[in-house]
Design a protein around this nucleic acid. Structure first.
Length: 685
DNA sequence: AGCTTTCAACTTTTT
DNA sequence: GTTGAAAGCT
């Protein structure tokens, strides 16, 4: 470990802000600090259960857990609280949510559920309108505002309407005993703020909290952390102001600015040594980011050698860009295969194409397919967004929370069981009239006044099926039994047949069914009780019932199992690339209007340009060895091509300045030596 | 007028 | 690849 990392790890007694530049080994710092906190004799001497490590994504949490496990052993690691902000919220609410009026078995709505509730609440079929409400409501919630605040602050008619829809939405959520993702932060905050005994309980429990990607926190997350940590609590925030690229969804750098003021004894430690990229790449990155007003100045450096100059690729149009990128990759790869035969340096998984917007991927996909190069597009539709998975999730959610009406409607109609609009409409009216959930209405005595017996029989049949499944799910643990239960259930409800009936293409139906089977395996695996990949038996305490697993299912959005292991080229957006790295990277379409993004009719604000500049910085710093920056000379607009302007960020990189001047042959020899001497395997995170 | 067809445009995304 | 808008058809 370098001196700065060491300082960060050894600083245990006051709040600490680690400004971790890209590739500076921040995960290393966090994991080692956790180990240090556990070691007796350094003043902290904490038990594993007293430490919390908070991340933004499940993937980051999983990686963190793995790396801590390697350091302190599986037994101690299992007792640590390593989780995302949202799963921490779930935990707080499951344990103490009753204090804010939430029953223990609440449901978590995903953004599609939210959208359909909003469409309903605002009586519109206009998806765009509903989405704009969803967006605005989420922003308000992330600032800690309720519909009441929003309505009184509303500056326009649109905002007032949104606020009114929000009020209806809040009512619905309460009635369903459901929360959305924003509530998973907002409600725990309310819980801790308003209930002293809960607050002290958690403050006593967690003696040291470490937060990853601190620059991505929003206003409510800041407040939540503050309450969780307490007035004299100790924490470690790890982040990089230069990599803050989520301002548009509520993240605010104010959280970084406020830290020294809110905690005067804050220790600020910059990590500037980069273990990822060559000097040529870092110089370009520093040149760009320098132009932003800086909160905490820092300059990245590395001792990995000068490396190859950043290559500017000027392309005629999008097709040309894709072809050139593919040709460039092939060239680099062939050189590696020649220079380092028998190594994995030429593997396709070491190559990535990064772009600003998802639709830019398509043309690269075509070119890669044509060249027979394997690739994956990351981002886009996730496994859990697929209709078949959502169908099954609806059933699981309904098991967890019988009052989850959106889940009820989806489950009772998929697969079709002869219960249609008529019946459900009546049931809905009945439940609204008596202020009960659809599930409760199902078993009400007086339902016979609203519906014919035949319809009621069908409803009761569904209810019995559900109760039976719930009973079994509660009492089934261990992956083998869980899998048997789930398969029996799918057979019961005839799900495979349902897929075949509703899909005219047999292949598509088969693909969907295969997704379902993957999903079953995935849940079963989570029920535990079988052999771990590393050979150790999972402990008895890790065995969970199917119902327990079902509770957390809506929080998880990616299988992320062997994602990194496929030997394929990665196509991804700049946003989704944060935290990742590849030896060879091409940044595509680095033109004005695209990166920095702006619409032709609007003038970008300086803050917007600054965030786009950070995005460029993130992109540059993903590359370990070679970096290509591709610029379009012309862009397709309608049928003809129009002139395209290179991004201002290209000039800002100052390519060709500051590098060493040397004989080309000498240079080639040096490059090869440097490349051969590079350490293998991943460094830092 | 209301429907269908065609054509172009397309922020960024986790939980 | 999907969606929304505009043109064209009945």
């Amino acid at each position: 470990m370098n001196p700065a990392q060491m300082t960060a790890v050894q600083h245990l007694d006051t709040p600490c802000l680690v400004l971790a530049g890209a590739g500076s080994g921040k995960t290393r710092v966090i994991t080692h600090k956790i180990a240090r906190l556990l070691q007796p004799g350094h003043g902290a001497d904490l038990a594993p259960s007293q430490i919390g490590a908070i991340t933004f994504t499940n993937k980051a949490a999983a990686e963190m857990r793995d790396r801590v496990k390697a350091l302190i052993g599986a037994k101690a690691a299992a007792k640590l609280l390593v989780c995302t902000f949202h799963s921490l919220g779930v935990r707080l609410l499951r344990e103490d949510g009753e204090a804010v009026g939430l029953k223990q078995k609440f449901s978590i709505l995903d953004s599609d559920d939210v959208l359909s509730i909003l469409r309903d609440a605002g009586s519109t079929t206009d998806a765009k309108l509903a989405r704009s409400w969803q967006w605005q409501i989420s922003l308000w919630k992330n600032q800690g505002l309720t519909s009441g605040h929003a309505l009184s602050d509303a500056a326009t008619d649109d905002e007032a309407l949104t606020a009114r829809v929000m009020a209806l939405y809040e009512e619905r959520l309460l009635a369903y005993q459901a929360v959305d993702f924003d509530d998973l932060i907002g409600l725990p905050l309310k819980l801790l703020a308003e209930h002293e005994h809960v607050r002290t309980k958690w403050q006593r429990q967690l003696r040291h909290v470490l937060v990853d990607e601190y620059q991505d926190t929003n206003a409510t997350q800041y407040e939540l952390l503050k309450l969780l940590v307490g007035p004299d609590g100790v924490f470690t925030a790890v982040g990089d102001d230069d990599q803050s690229i989520y301002g548009w969804r509520g993240a605010t750098l104010d959280n970084l600015k406020r830290l020294p003021q809110d905690y005067p004894n804050l220790k600020v430690i910059p990590l500037e040594q980069n273990y990822r990229s060559t000097s040529a790449i870092l110089r370009a990155a520093n040149n760009v980011i320098q132009l932003n007003p800086k909160l905490f100045p820092k300059t990245l450096w590395s001792d990995l050698g000068e490396g190859e100059p950043v290559k500017l690729m000027e392309c005629d149009n999008e097709e040309h860009e894709a072809e050139r990128t593919v040709a460039h990759f092939q060239l680099v790869r062939n050189r590696l295969l020649h220079d380092f035969p028998g190594t994995d340096k030429g593997d396709w998984r070491h190559f990535a194409i990064l772009y600003r917007a998802n639709h830019q991927a398509r043309i690269f996909e075509q070119a890669l397919r044509k060249a027979n190069i394997p690739y994956k597009v990351s981002g886009g539709q996730s496994f859990f967004d697929r209709a078949e998975i959502k169908d099954l999730c609806a059933w699981l959610r309904l098991l967890v929370n019988n009052d989850d009406d959106p889940a009820f409607l989806r489950a009772i109609t998929t697969p079709k069981r002869g219960i249609g609009h008529q019946t459900l409409g009546k049931l809905g009216e009945f439940s609204a009239k008596w202020k009960v959930s659809l599930y409760e209405a199902l078993f009400a005595e007086s339902l016979s006044t609203a519906l014919p017996d035949r319809a009621i029989d069908g409803l009761h049949e569904f209810g019995r099926c559900l109760n039976d499944l719930e009973y079994r799910a509660r009492h089934t643990q261990g992956s083998e039994d869980a899998k048997a239960l789930l398969m029996a259930w799918l057979k019961d409800i005839g799900y495979e047949q349902h897929l075949l009936d509703n899909e005219d293409n047999e292949k598509v139906a088969a693909a969907r069914w295969s997704n379902v089977l993957d999903f079953v395996d995935w849940i079963a695996k989570r029920c535990g009780g079988d052999i771990d990949p590393d050979g150790a038996m999972t402990t008895e305490s890790e065995r969970r019932s199917v119902l327990d697993v079902a509770q957390t299912v809506s929080l998880i959005t990616s299988l992320a199992e062997r994602e990194g292991e496929q030997n394929v080229v990665t196509l991804t957006t700049l946003h989704a690339s944060k935290g990742l790295e590849w030896p060879h990277v091409v940044l595509a379409g680095v033109n004005e209007g695209v990166l920095p993004f702006n619409r032709e009719d609007t003038e970008p604000t300086p803050q917007h340009i600054e965030e786009e500049r950070r995005l460029m910085y993130v992109g540059i710093t993903r590359a370990r060895e070679t970096l290509g920056v591709s610029v379009l000379k012309r862009r397709k607009k309608g049928r003809e091509y129009i002139q395209a302007t290179p991004s201002r960020f290209v000039a800002e990189m100052k390519l060709g300045e500051g590098g060493p001047r040397e004989d080309p042959r000498e240079k080639l020899r040096r490059l090869r030596e440097e490349l051969a001497a590079r350490p293998r395997g991943p460094v830092g995170g």
